[in-house]
Nucleic acid binder design. Sequence first.
DNA 1: AACAATACATAAGTGAATTATGTATATAAG
DNA 2: CTTATATACATAATTCACTTATGTATTGTT
Lengths: 110, 110
Amino acid sequence: MHSPELLKGTLQTIVLKVLKDHGRMYGYEITQRVKELSDDRILLTEGALYPALHKLEAEGMLKTETENIGKRVRKYYSLTPQGRSLVKERVNEFMEFIRTMGNVLQVNLG
Amino acid sequence: MHSPELLKGTLQTIVLKVLKDHGRMYGYEITQRVKELSDDRILLTEGALYPALHKLEAEGMLKTETENIGKRVRKYYSLTPQGRSLVKERVNEFMEFIRTMGNVLQVNLG
DNA sequence: AACAATACATAAGTGAATTATGTATATAAG
DNA sequence: CTTATATACATAATTCACTTATGTATTGTT
């Protein structure tokens, strides 16, 4: 696992980008996908993920559809057009941040 | 300026690496150097910097020398051998984090 | 004379996260 | 069969690194 400090501020970016790349997903699925993509290095906690999803939905960035799987309920999230813009913004912001950090730390990233 | 959320957790890494690259520096000098290296994108606040320096000193990562410049006092910080190890650790940690984020976000960083 | 820059320091407040707790179904193992 | 693990959601309490605010004082600029 990563020193979790560095992860701060990246949750929204991660959630949005994963949703963009994989389309319609439910919360638990997002945690598993991120775990897989990060080779077990990023383990999203439910206490962080669900509030983040609710917030993005309230802001109109995500829309939801509820599905019954057996007796269980699944809540699928997908990007709205607004959400699609936000992904680009957030990813660009992150890449810009990395470029800056590369200069400050004088290291070659990527 | 960057969305400051992303900066969280990078302060120690920045301070240590800048001290490694430039040797003996005082607090205000560090803020100016980082501002310059980041092209005005990272502006360290005193409220964050000074406590961070004090903590690193208390942990034996930095040592200090006080100098009188006119009637003003300057506190110069430099890395201890332990501090030198920590820099490598922190920078490696950051690069590893970037690599992971590259995989999760499916983008080419650097 | 007034303002900005230099130079340190610490206390109060914020907010995104962790940790803890709760509910419930499905499946594998023993 | 019953216990543990995985699936699936949700929210409240707490933490802690940071921002913001405040304080002191010297030096350089307009």
